[in-house]
């Protein structure tokens, strides 16, 4: 690999990472505004037009706060945990196909809006997403505080029980596309048709989509599965002992996690960048389509947060193991039948 290819990869990664960071900043605003609308309120609308500069005000506040570190914490891990969480959450975006256009740079063909088109992109994404949970666990443990430890324990248990459902809910799509490359999965629905149409995989595996949605909530530590934070019981859960920018890193990672899961969901179940009835859209329309689908996901997540209260912890586990897992298995078997018989293969 020549040096300029590596350089180009760096540039692409840099651009994507920074764009995602901007989206994160907007996400904090979007979430607060949308939550307010769900509660007959207006939300932050004072800083800048429509309150759009609120994230900057928040950031300034967090920067000004003391970089607090309690005496009894494990100093290295306490610092490493938020950084690691942030890193892993951001790493997922390396394999997300925001578009499907290829650029031909001096004979070197590279996907335009995807940092790295790995052959095992799905594996990479799931692994990075799962590793993000370790930042939470390590942070909670390193804090040397009961509340933080309880939060970390919960994150741990939740990770194990919901990661399985998440992956199993994604399996139907993998069965039908027969690949682990994210860009191929995004176009995979073109290989299957019902009566001449190429529906997204949400039509082929609707139950899988719903289960993915639920498991994604747990994976991203979102309400109603935010037991590792659980302000009412655990103060702040795993980030009780964090403040200022270290806390900001955790918050950042949480939103990036959410966005990453949304992006994976769009790629898997909503046909990636494809627009129905418009097979040859240009790169910008592709990006817009992807963004709109992600926005839909985000809206649903916020909608659910505004609606569903936190489950009791034992019920959460029971739901994960006794309800979601069997249902995901059922969907897996049904899709396995379809895929093995080749019904609907175009």
């Amino acid at each position: 690999m020549p040096i300029w290819e590596i350089l180009a990869l760096f540039v692409k990664g840099f651009v994507i990472a920074n764009l995602i960071m901007v989206v994160f900043a907007l996400m904090t605003w979007v979430e607060r505004r949308l939550l307010s609308f769900f509660q007959y309120r207006l939300g932050p609308n004072r800083v800048g037009p429509f309150g759009l500069l609120q994230p900057i005000a928040d950031l300034l506040k967090l920067i000004n706060k003391e970089n607090f570190k309690p005496n009894a914490v494990s100093a290295v891990l306490h610092l490493a945990a938020p950084i690691a969480t942030l890193f892993f959450a951001l790493a997922v975006f390396a394999v997300i196909p925001f578009g499907n256009e290829d650029w031909n740079l001096f004979g070197w063909v590279t996907p335009s809006s995807m940092a790295a088109d790995l052959d095992v992109g799905v594996l990479f994404a799931i692994a990075m997403s799962g590793l993000g949970g370790y930042g939470v666990i390590v942070g909670g443990w390193a804090s040397n505080s009961k509340y933080a430890l309880l939060g970390a324990l919960r994150a741990c248990a939740q990770l194990i029980s919901y990661e399985i459902t998440l992956t199993l809910a994604m399996m139907p799509v993998l069965l039908m596309t027969g690949t682990l490359s994210m860009s191929k999965i995004a176009e995979g629905h073109l290989d299957w048709s019902i009566g001449g149409w190429h529906p997204w995989f949400i039509v082929w595996a609707p139950l899988g989509f719903v289960l993915f949605l639920i498991a994604a909530l747990a994976e991203a530590n979102r309400a109603p599965f935010d037991h590792s934070e659980a302000e009412q019981e655990l103060v702040g859960g795993f980030h009780t002992e964090y403040g200022g920018l270290r806390y900001a890193a955790f918050a950042n990672a949480e939103y990036l996690h959410l966005l990453a899961i949304c992006a994976i969901g769009v790629t898997f179940f909503l046909g990636g960048t494809s627009i129905p009835g418009l097979p040859d859209a240009n790169a910008w329309l592709d990006l817009l389509s992807f963004t709109v689908k992600m926005a839909f996901f985000v809206f649903v997540f916020i909608w659910i947060r505004a609606t569903v209260p936190r489950l009791r912890y034992d019920r959460l586990m029971r739901m994960g193991w006794k309800a979601l897992l069997p249902l995901a298995t059922a969907q897996f078997l049904i899709t396995a039948l379809i895929a093995s018989q080749g019904w609907g293969r175009a």
Binding site: L34, F37, F38, Y40, R41, L42, W303, A306
Partner: peptide
């Protein structure tokens, strides 16, 4: 529950500026 919150989302907010 989702229907209830969606009604709130579509309804008029009651915040006074």
């Amino acid at each position: 529950g989702l229907a209830t919150t969606l009604r709130a989302f579509l309804g008029r907010n009651i915040t006074e500026q």
